[in-house]
Design a protein around this nucleic acid. Sequence first.
RNA 1: GCCGAAGUGGCGGAAUUGGUAGACGCGCUGGAUUCAAAAUCCAGUUCUUGCAAGAGAGUGCGGGUUCGAUUCCCGCCUUCGGUACCA
Length: 1032
Amino acid sequence: MEYQPRAIEKKWKKYWEDHEIYKVENQSDRPKYYVLDMFPYPSGSGLHVGHPLGYIASDIFSRYKRLKGFNVLHPMGYDAFGLPAEQYAVQIGVHPAVSTRDNISRYRHQLDNIGLSFDWSREVQTCDPNYYKWTQWIFLQLFGHYYCTACDKAKPVSDLIAQFESGGSEKATANHTFEGSFTAEEWKNKSNKEKDSILSHYRLAYRQVQYVNWCEALGTILANDEIKDGVSERGGFPVERKPMVQWSLRTTAYAERLLQGLKDIDFPEALKIQQRNWIGKSEGAKAYFQLKGFDEKIEVFTTRPDTIFGATFMVLAPEHDWVDMITSPEQRKKIDEYLDYVGSRSELQRMSDVKHITGEFTGAYAINPLTGKEIPIWVAEYVLKDYGTGAIMAVPSDDERDSNFAKHFGLDIISVVDKSDYPDADMKDKVGKMINSGFVTGMEVKDAIKAIIEKLEADGIGEKQINYRLRDANFSRQRYWGEPFPIFFDKDDIPVPVDIEDLPVELPALDDFKPTSDGKAPLGKLESWMNTPQGKREIDTMPGFAGSSWYFLRYMDPNNDKAFVSKEAVDYWQDVDLYIGGAEHAVGHLLYSRTWHKFFYDLGLVPTKEPFKKLVNQGMIGGRSNFVYRANEKFAEQVLEEKLRSVSGSFEKNKIIGQGENAFEVDFACDECKVAIELKTLYNLERYDDKHHDQFTKLGYTFIPLAIEEVFAHYHDFSPIIEKIRKANLGEKVQPNVNTKETALFVSQDMIKDRSAVTKLHVDVNIVHHDIMDTDAFEKSRTDFRRAVYVLNDQGQYKCSHAFEKMSKSKFNVVNPDIMVDQYGADCFRMYEMFLGPIEQSKPWNTEGISGVQSFLKKFYALFYDENGLRITDDEPTKDEYKIVHQCIKNINKDIERFSFNTCVSEFMKCTNELRKLKCHKKAVLKELVVLIAPFAPHLAEELWHELGNEGTVNLAAYPQHDESYLTESTITYPISINGKKRAIHDFAVDASKEDIEKEAMALEIVQKWTEGKTVRKVIVVPKRMVNIVVG
RNA sequence: GCCGAAGUGGCGGAAUUGGUAGACGCGCUGGAUUCAAAAUCCAGUUCUUGCAAGAGAGUGCGGGUUCGAUUCCCGCCUUCGGUACCA
């Protein structure tokens, strides 16, 4: 009987669905295991074969864990809010809700097709009000909490207010950005507006001015990736930085815990390093520099307090608040000009243009607190407002940028660190002996850092400080398709939370998704929605990461309308045991989720400190593009030239005819027969009129307008064109053949003689097999090439070239999993995806290779069936047969555990090939293989499981255990090397002693041959491994 | 520039702790079956050399450690990914 995946897979899909095989309960006597895939955004173009790589891997692992006796949670849902749907709406006019729903149903169909074991009863969609109700609820929790630095956790803002009321700002132990202080008494006397303003510097969700990329021409705000080279990607319009009051999340409060938490989780080291760099912890000191002629002191942050004696100038960020105040009248004009210049530069330009050093002197001076010397204060774009204090003490001797700056503007440089003891150290290394540095001269850098900080602290002009590169997350988007904020603004513009009972704040219907004329979010157009008796609603919406930062918790309890997740559910499932997804989320999604989870932990809502125990990154699958070569004008010329030569030798190319002012060049002309040929596209020839003809007539030439298309159309039989020339020669007026319109000539890759005469074009890989193009399908697929003519190779085939590129629609190299499943079956597709290579590596897709997996499945099936039906026997397996199967069980087990799915597939192939050779159809061994292969090829396994007479589903069978006793051998094959080079192999008894092996090996003929006439210096015997004989 | 990952046959890749390099598959070559094709089956397939037996070379390049290195160390080259005036 033939293996028919389509029938088998259809049958069991239905069975699983009918019996709700994948439905999971929040309780079990089995231990729990939670396998999660990264939340997909349902894009309009659907899945290609690169997407399911991670889903198949997680599915295999889920099924494996289930067979191993775990209660496995394996859910799926959609990150359904997002920009693409909104852009699509603006362009095409389809409501985002509609396109998102369509995309989701397409995704669902594609996912189902692959036979993934998701518990769909737990599906969540971030755009569903029942879901975003809780996203809004979480936002209100963030709004209602602050970060207590004394207890190192989030606490209610009411606690903070109590502290203010009893002891003023001094008493509060909190992570905040408030500058200034107040007493309890002062607090009580402040207005509500003032209180709100102060509290916003403490809340975990707060409003502050942030800069957005405003594009006046497009009337919209752009994301960073919508800007290329400082201008908008669409249209190339200028982009300016526009200040806007926006919601932020105080993620920086969690910086240290996010950093420390990395120690406890099993993430790839590369990913941890990325997160560490993003958090960017640096230890140093802050110090105050007195401004000359002002009461104020400027605060700077430095990681090198030891070099303070070398600080010869100071640099402020152009956006620093005090630039205006300290600028001297003489420098005013120059500074203003400089600030204008900086304002004209996008953030991207400022960052990418490192070589170009710019800056301006403010005319003001600061006093170096330790040297007492006056140092000039400059403004320069290399200092960033958002990092540290937006001001630096510049030490040109020990910082590369400061050094470049000082050299460029001729500022003082004082050497303060002698690195002569460390010849390999560069400027950045914190080593060396201090020189020219007052009381720390002679100290090692390490000690000097300590001594200077002590001195700064003693004098009250600075202190030790830890700084993080991490910035607070911007939480506002001026978009429509996102979660509305559950916030009103009262008459004083104080944000007031919507009552919990009134959640969710549903996203109102809208039919025009462009921003308002002044750049406010689209919801600002809905006056009736925006203006309520409680106040004005917030019209911004939340960003994509709002819904995706907690979705894994919702899967535990997706339909709960009393809580975002119940305590029982989260106590049962705890956290995600295995998370599989792309490395592109290394810092964004993974850092936000971790932050939110820690916040939930602080509130006692989850029992774990980290959401994801183990994470595996999946690599990308690249596309294998195919190319065809379309002949161009040059090709047509070459063809014509060659063909004309065979007719008459006297045609010349690019011939000048006529004389003096009347002379002009034609493509081909024959003096003898007085024929001139112009070779142009039909499009161009249509523009010729009678005057054109007359030009030739006057000179006594017959004019032939010849279309390039015509040349291509008659490439294989040129006689119509020859005939045409003959007719023209007889005085007949000839016209280009319009019937050849849309004719294109394609040259097989191995027939190309001149690369410049052809144009390389992408061709749909789905109509190319083994690089040979199906020309019929080609003409059907492209209306513009429907009249194609080919130059085929010797085998009569059109051969394409290929290249590996990103899989994308525009490159015609997208392979749809549906087509693969349709042709080969889901089981085959799943195994081939895994067979491609290690899960974490990027690799190219090549459909050709799938036939190997297909024939494996046929062979596997043939172990159970012959043409008459089932051929299983109840015979006792031989020792060899047992060995093959148990070796397979052992290897598969080990490889699944280390996520090496590609070698698992190889292992199945090897085992099948070996059993096939032995003609083994014995139930006792095959029944083990059926369960073993179930995670990989679930449909086939289920079919065979039932054919073997079992009840229920193979999904809940017991996973086979290997028996080591079947694997032990009486002899072991050893390689025998002479001087490390393998010269022979030989079997030795498994329990042979080192001495016996040595003696036996030395006696071998081949060893004798190699050692003859030489001294044996050493014999190395590694039991069960190898023998190496060293001769000399 | 910095950080990270990776360089192995024609191709995807294998080699668990330093111990038979190239498993498994694609492709290719030859053969069987067939009226023929598809499918299937058998054999071969790192390179050089040789009729063969064999010999030599070989995991990006150059060194080193070792009886032995794809694996460990040092230096370099290339590709891919990330990131950026981070004081």
